[in-house]
Structure formats: C-alpha cells, structure tokens
Design a protein around this nucleic acid. Structure first.
Length: 310
DNA sequence: AAGCTGCCCAACCGCCCAGGT
DNA sequence: TACCTGGGCGGTTGGGCAGCT
C-alpha cells in the first residue's frame, strides 16, 4: 500500500489513503464510519437507513414533479412517502426549490444580473436568499455558487490591492495629493480600485472575453519569445486575471498607451519621448514593448510579495 | 491513451427561527 | 416557559467533467 501511495502524488494519493482508511472502517451494517456518523447525527437519527441520498435520477424528478403538480406542496416531510420517493423531506424540498421549480432560470448570468449581485452583496453581505429575491428565476444556491466560484476570488484580490494602495497613499485623499506626497512614486504604485460598474463595464466577468488570460495566449507567447528578459522568475500570467492586477494593468499596460512612462538608464520616458529619441521603427518599438513588459512583471511581483507579506 | 488537476454546481449538513402544543 | 417540528438559510463537500500533461 505504501509503495502504491508513494508512486502516485497529490490528490490521487490523498484519495487512495482516504479510500484505504474508509475501507478498513466499514461497519457491520456495511457503512463506512463517516457514513455512519452522518446517518446517526441529529438530522438522521430518526430516518430509516433505506433513505436514498446523492444525485437525483430522472425518474425521481418525474415523481416529485407529478406529485407537486397534482397535490401541491403541503408537508415536505410527509410528501416523499406519499409520492413514493425514498428521500428525506429536506432533500425533496431542496431538489424542488433549486432545480425542478418551473420558474427557475438556467444558463449564464447576464451582465446586469452580475452587477445586481455585486451591488446587493455590497449592501446585504452573504444573505443569498435576500439577493435571490431580487433576481427573478435565480435561486439562492445559484447565486451563492456563482459568487463563490466567479466573484469571491476577485473581491479578495481587489481588497488586497486596496490595502496596498492605502499603505502607499497614507491618508491622502486624491491622486493629486498622492503625487504631491510621493513625487517619485510611479502610477503603478497607485492602482485604481474599481467599483462594480467599472468591472462589468470593462467586460471582465467570466462570461465575457477577458483582456488577457491563459486562454488568450498572446502575453504568454510574448514572454516565451523574450529571450533577453532579465527577470529570474516568470510571472504566471494566468493569475493576472485577478481584478487587482487587471487594475494594475489599467495603469501599466504594455499595450503602447501614450502616457505610459518607463525608465531606461535612469531616464523616464513617455511613449512620445521614446519615439522622439529612438524613432518609430520596429526595433525601437519592440524594445520599448519589451521594457514595459519587464517593468510590468516586476510590479506584479512586488504586488504579490506585498500581498504575501514578504 | 491515461492520469492528474482544477473548476463547477448539485446536494448535503448544521444551525436557526417561527409557530404550535 | 419549555420543548418539538417544519422550513429556511448559509457554509461546505464531493462527483463529474474538461483541459492539460
């Protein structure tokens, strides 16, 4: 067994270990220990062992739908018996409320719905049922899942950036004041924190094409092509999808925005200055782009170090 | 082709609350 | 007032799947 576990890694190994333990803990009733614990916990102690759990079959769905259509909802605990279902009332209720109800809207969330979720979450916090009440056809579970899988990580990153900004800004109230206090600080150190409208207006939600990402390999390919880069650690550009770093990008794109300043041999150049001194030839523009890319990577790494508390 | 990994989301769990006794 | 029960809610889990190596 140990040899087997050694030969596999990560999650597979953990799964193997877990299966091994569970297999050895099978009780006399034929249930694993965790299963027994679940079944004997408060919610299950009065339930027969024959109750079915897990994914619903199409036949069970049909039974529940037919029963509710005919008799309506009267008592979730009695209903499954009457409908011929070997399910708990709780399981039936959940299945109906989250999946089978005829008024449920399925499919991707629209931009407007996402904006509403963000706004309401700012207002209400994790009160998913209250948020769902404002989105016809969406269930609290759907919204909770969407938030946890699509929006939460972006929120956390944005908070991290906000913390960094706060530290760099001190108590200053405006960009002008910030620049007065920190004349040597580049714009990159003062990233803009976007609100929900700004996020969605940029199309940075998952259902929209992303500015750049693992699935938009231009950035990655450019990095791989760049043989002369002096940075020892390559930035994982997939991670730049975080809103925080996209807001850095907003300030420091190497998309050749005219106002972008890059230092070279101690001199700070705007794109215009660069063109004036180096020309607009492909070599000059390529080296300019390469420069921006490198500095952006450094800034991203600094930002990550800050977030990690390095 | 097979194994691994990460993501998505349906389903579960535990807790809480309101209403009834 | 205390207890019980049904229903609702938010947090969490884990199976399935797609993409990657």
């Amino acid at each position: 067994m140990r040899t087997l576990i050694k030969s596999i890694s990560g999650r597979a190994a953990m799964t193997a270990v877990w299966c091994f333990k569970v297999e050895n803990l099978k009780s006399r009733r034929g249930f694993s220990r965790p299963e027994m614990m679940k079944r004997t916990s408060r919610n299950y102690r009065n339930l027969p062992f024959s109750l079915k759990r897990g994914a619903w079959s199409p036949e069970e769905d049909l039974k529940l739908i037919a029963y509710i259509k005919r008799y309506g909802i009267w008592n979730w605990n009695e209903m499954p018996k009457a409908a011929g279902l070997l399910r708990s009332g709780k399981s039936c209720r959940l299945r109906w409320m989250n999946y089978l109800r005829p008024d449920i809207k399925r499919g991707n969330f629209s931009k407007e719905e996402v904006q509403t979720i963000i706004k309401l979450h700012e207002l209400l916090g994790n009160r998913w049922s209250a948020i769902a009440a404002k989105l016809p056809g969406r269930t609290d579970n759907d919204i909770k899942n969407y938030w946890n899988t699509h929006l939460r990580k972006h929120l956390i990153n944005n908070i991290n950036i906000a913390m960094r900004t706060t530290e760099l800004q001190g108590t200053q109230k405006s960009n002008i004041e910030f620049k007065q206090k920190n004349p040597s600080e580049r714009d990159i150190s003062h990233p803009k924190i976007l609100n929900s409208e700004e996020y969605s207006s940029k199309g940075w939600f998952p259902m929209s094409p992303k500015p750049f990402s693992a699935s938009n390999p231009n950035f990655v390919n450019d990095e791989k092509k760049n043989k002369n880069q002096t940075i020892d650690e390559e930035i994982d550009v997939g991670l730049l999808e975080s809103f925080g770093e996209l807001s850095l990008w907003d300030k420091w794109p190497y998309s050749m925005e005219g106002s972008c300043k890059v230092e070279d041999d101690g001199e700070t150049y705007t794109d215009e200055m660069w063109k004036e001194t180096r020309g607009t030839g492909s070599n000059a523009m390529e080296s300019r782009q390469q420069q921006k890319r490198q500095i952006f990577q450094i800034q991203v790494r600094k930002n990550r170090d800050f977030q990690r508390g390095v």
